[in-house]
Write a protein that binds this DNA or RNA. Structure first.
Lengths: 229, 229
DNA sequence: GGCCAGGTGTGAGGCGGATCACAAAGCGAA
DNA sequence: TTCGCTTTGTGATCCGCCTCACACCTGGCC
């Protein structure tokens, strides 16, 4: 399982620019705006025009929406190598979600038209984008499954394992999820109240499945945690 | 809103093969297996090899998974013009979901390698695929939002409107959802018990928002239904 | 140090939806 | 038509999660 993950991780993280020749890469590099965004700042907002695609280099980006009741729902966390705002490729309709820097972030803003033009010249580039989007589809699909598998325990267990699978750092203590994630955020991610998240984590901790620090979460017993979900 | 929908619908339905030249199209046509599948039959199953991409020509396909408790969860319904099994483009790992003919279906099976080769020669084809995948991402995203917006009423209202938006047929009586959809299926789609779906639909009916026949559902008052969700 | 703010821990009470158990109403096939 | 099966309709009961209401802890800032 970890092998498969590594492969995906690799594909996703390093292959986008590989597909291009050196001069093309340099051209892209030149036509690209580099951005730094501080933790908590907006990158774009619902309703903004979709004329750019972003490539995340450093940090963590949170993709979310705000419901009519001002309730935030977190759609995904993105890590270095991910692209986002990629719906701009498909159509120019305004953004339907919010992108926020969840940690300090460095990213590239690619102009939509430029990207499309370049992709036409180098099919491999288009293929890489397609691949990344395919991975995103797969991730969303598993999230939908999670949300439909009902109990709070299952949802949280499943979500933690997914996060660990996508971004986790394995060491001798277990798998560390390198994501500043408080219980409220976790709640928004899985659609549970903060208090419920608390009791579930408490329970997992007592059973020796996870260690939940204030800052981040470590899965100490992935096998037994998987049995829960 | 209906205008935007029509555009998407059109793009999605007719543009995949448009991108190719006539000889290429003929080549594809030749290398393609045409399939007919009867209502209720499997197209592929979890664990099957992912060496084909399918293009839905006629009918409705149901994408679903079976949880560990034998509970079916419906991920999506697909209509003519949709492609599915598209994760085969990204990687060869086995299918992680089930595709079933929800109505009698006619479809094209495209060999993975052939498609990739052709896409390399005609970048426009790759671009069309990317677009279709983008639309799929957007749809999954809205589904996640739905599942997180909690109450049964909201979820059902939202889902019906989405179905109407994607596939609905507008006439003077309202918008008809041309999908054989019983209450149990609707429940699996939104993660609710069949009985709950029943009472909600009952309520909607009494308020004059929908007419729910045994076979299909008609939204008689989209505006007020939207106000619910 | 002392104070505030954001995060965590925990209980009481209520409500929404699941589950169970049927009844009734089409629908399809013989 | 008749029988059986699928689908819909409806109530009783139960349980899980939400809500609200706090106390506590910890880190950052003055």
């Amino acid at each position: 399982m970890m092998a498969a993950h590594s492969k995906l991780w690799y594909l996703q993280r390093f292959r986008l620019l590989d597909a291009m020749t050196e001069p093309q890469r340099r051209m892209i590099e030149k036509m690209t705006r580099m951005l730094e965004v501080k933790r908590g700042q907006r990158i774009y907002m619902t309703g903004d025009p979709s004329d750019q695609i972003f490539l995340l280099k450093v940090g963590v980006v949170k993709i979310s929406t705000i419901g009519s009741d001002q309730q935030e729902t977190i759609l995904a966390f993105l890590y270095p190598g991910d692209i986002f705002g990629e719906l701009a490729i498909v159509e120019e309709s305004p953004r339907d979600h919010i992108a926020t820097a969840h940690e300090d972030v460095v990213l590239c803003a690619l102009n939509r038209d430029l990207l499309l033009r370049t992709a036409q010249e180098t099919p491999a580039l288009g293929y890489q984008i397609t691949k990344i989007m395919g991975l995103r589809i797969r991730r969303f699909r598993t999230r939908i499954e999670q949300l439909l598998c009902k109990s709070a325990q299952e949802r949280i267990a499943h979500t933690l394992l997914d996060l660990a699978n996508d971004y986790g750092i394995q060491d001798d203590q277990g798998i560390l999820i390198p994501l500043r994630l408080n219980q409220a955020d976790l709640g928004n991610l899985v659609g549970l109240a903060r208090e419920t998240v608390n009791v579930v984590l408490q329970d997992f901790r007592q059973r020796g499945l996870v260690e939940a620090g204030r800052r981040n979460i470590r899965i100490t017993d992935p096998a037994r945690l998987r049995a829960v979900s």
